[in-house]
Structure formats: structure tokens, C-alpha cells
Design a protein around this nucleic acid. Structure first.
Length: 203
DNA sequence: TGCCAGGCCCTCTTTAGGGCCTT
């Protein structure tokens, strides 16, 4: 399977359309079932971080004031990710910020995304919820550090990707690449069983 | 003026509403 870049943003809020900016990003390269490379950096967003966000993430205005500018960090992480396809937990959120932050510096931002949350909802319907931290504990995956910091969350999402990838192999006989993971995440639940059966890799 | 995300999914649905997830 080709390498996948798993990313996680910490931000000043929920949406770039509301003026929110990224404050931290982590990207890990997942290949052959394990993390093989890591990138992480705080960034100076140029806007204030609301107190609620500092309480949630531990990232303060003082911390990002001392960090490189968002533009610099986004250039670095784009170079790190290169042409690899991306995955995030609730990718609609990270994709918005990925596109908005790269658009600000006129870099290509249309990389394909897959979403571990949508995949988990389909493949792990028995889980009580599909929050990243809960699924990590529920599946017995490693504790990667403080939740709501970019590297810990990116590593959790990569570990969950590995768990789901292995589950597809063992339970459904499917060797999935990024494109197939992205496709499966969008199959209506009513058609999921038939789709999984049709994708079974011949023995 | 008042308000302010948005994509996905389920259902008491489709001429809609509300919960889940991310910060």
C-alpha cells in the first residue's frame, strides 16, 4: 500500500470562514502498518487564541507568539507531505484548514483526503461513539500523549487507520489503498455490506 | 438586526430537524 500522510490541526476555532487560523499542525507518514516519519510545529496564526481553546489544547498566545509564522510552517509541512494522499479524523474539519492555510500562500491544496471517523462509523458501528480518543481506548491502541495536541492526535489517527486497515483484511478480505478507504467512507450504510462483499480480494 | 461551521447520517424524512465530530 502507498504511504498516507495523517494530519491533525489545532486551531483558534471551528472554521476558517469565521476567521479562525491554525495554531499547530502534525503530520505523520503511515506506511506498511506503521508510522515511518513525523513532522510537528506550532505556528503563529496572527490572531488571538480564545481562552476556551487554550484551556482545551494547552496552546497559549505566548506559545504561538514565539513560533514561526503560519506561512513558514505550512510551506514546510506541504513539502513534508509532498504528493502523498491525506487522512484525518473528521477530515472535513482538517481539510478546510489545509485548503485555507495553503491557499493563503498560493500552494496547491487539492490533495485527496480520507476520513478515519467516517470509516470507523461504518466499520465499527458497535462502538459507543466515534471520537478519536474514545476509539483509541476502545480498540486498545497505544496512548500517544496529551489529546488535543497535534502530534498526539495525528499518531492516534494513524494508529486507528492501521486498526481499520487490518480489520478490512481480517474481517472482510479487502486490501484497501487510500482511494478505496476514501470510497468506503462514502458508501451509504444501506449498501455497505454488499459493497464490502464485492470488494473482497480473490484469494 | 441578529446571528454566525459544515459535512455526514438517521429518522418521527425528502417541502426537515437534530445529533455527531472536529477546535
Amino acid at each position: 500500500m502507498e504511504a498516507i500522510a495523517v494530519i491533525d490541526f489545532e486551531t483558534t476555532g471551528l472554521s476558517p470562514s469565521q476567521g479562525c487560523r491554525a495554531t499547530e499542525i502534525a503530520a505523520v507518514i503511515w506506511q506498511d502498518g506503521r508510522i515511518v516519519e513525523r513532522y510537528q510545529s506550532l505556528m503563529n496564526p496572527g490572531v488571538a487564541i480564545p481562552p476556551f481553546i487554550t484551556q482545551l489544547t494547552g496552546i497559549s498566545n505566548a506559545m504561538v507568539r514565539a513560533a514561526p509564522a503560519a506561512e513558514h510552517v505550512m510551506r514546510e509541512v506541504a513539502e513534508f507531505v509532498a504528493t502523498r494522499p491525506l487522512l484525518a479524523h473528521n477530515a472535513s474539519f482538517d481539510q478546510k484548514f489545509w485548503r485555507a492555510e495553503l491557499a493563503r500562500i498560493a500552494l496547491p491544496n487539492e490533495q485527496p483526503f480520507a476520513c478515519s471517523m467516517l470509516l470507523a462509523r461504518r466499520l465499527l458501528p458497535e462502538a459507543a461513539n466515534h471520537k478519536l480518543g474514545f476509539l483509541t481506548q476502545w480498540a486498545g491502541l497505544p496512548n500517544t500523549g496529551k489529546a488535543h495536541r497535534a502530534m498526539a492526535d495525528a499518531e492516534m489517527a494513524a494508529n486507528l487507520l492501521g486498526y481499520l486497515h487490518q480489520l478490512l483484511i481480517e474481517r472482510h478480505g479487502i486490501q484497501a489503498d487510500h482511494a478505496l478507504l476514501a470510497r468506503l467512507a462514502r458508501v451509504p450504510n444501506a449498501r455497505l455490506k454488499d459493497t464490502l462483499h464485492s470488494l473482497r480480494t480473490p484469494a
